[in-house]
Amino acid sequence: MLVVVGPDIDSFVSEVWRIARFIAYDDYVSIERQGGPGKEYRMFSRSRNGLAFEVAVRASE
């Protein structure tokens, strides 16, 4: 899993989607907002062979 940490700014969600569009290359990419304190999203790429990669994007405090 790759972890990306960035500033907790108003455009954080827009940045998450920008990253998702950049890394989407296979059959399917999903984005899930993680529960708990802080802001974190996980992106999963799925291919015919199974899970291809996982990226976590976290807002720094």
Rank of each mutant, 00 (worst) to 15 (best):
R33W: 09
A20F: 04
V5S: 10
S30L: 05
V3T: 09
S60L: 14
E61R: 15
P7S: 11
E32T: 11
P37G: 04
D10N: 12
R48P: 09
V5K: 11
E32F: 10
S11A: 13
D27T: 14
R48C: 11
V13H: 03
F44L: 05
K39T: 00
V55T: 14
V4E: 01
L51Q: 04
V3D: 03
S14V: 04
V29R: 02
N49L: 13
D8F: 03
D26K: 08
S14P: 02
G35K: 09
V29D: 01
A52N: 13
V5H: 01
R33M: 10
V5L: 00
S47K: 14
F53E: 14
A20L: 08
R48A: 15
V16N: 01
S45D: 04
L2D: 12
V29A: 02
V55Y: 12
I19S: 01
V57K: 01
V57S: 01
F44K: 02
M1N: 12
R42K: 12
G50W: 09
S45L: 03
W17A: 10
V3G: 00
S60P: 03
R58E: 07
S45Y: 03
G50K: 08
F44H: 04
E54T: 13
Y28D: 07
R42H: 08
E61W: 15
G38S: 04
A59V: 02
S45W: 04
V29K: 00
D10K: 15
E15Q: 02
I9L: 09
G50C: 07
G35D: 06
P37T: 03
R46V: 08
L51A: 01
E61L: 15
D10P: 15
E40S: 06
S30D: 09
R48N: 12
L2F: 11
D8W: 04
S11C: 08
E40K: 12
Y25P: 00
Y25G: 11
S30F: 07
D10F: 11
I19G: 01
G50Y: 11
A20E: 06
K39H: 00
D10H: 13
M43I: 15
G50H: 08
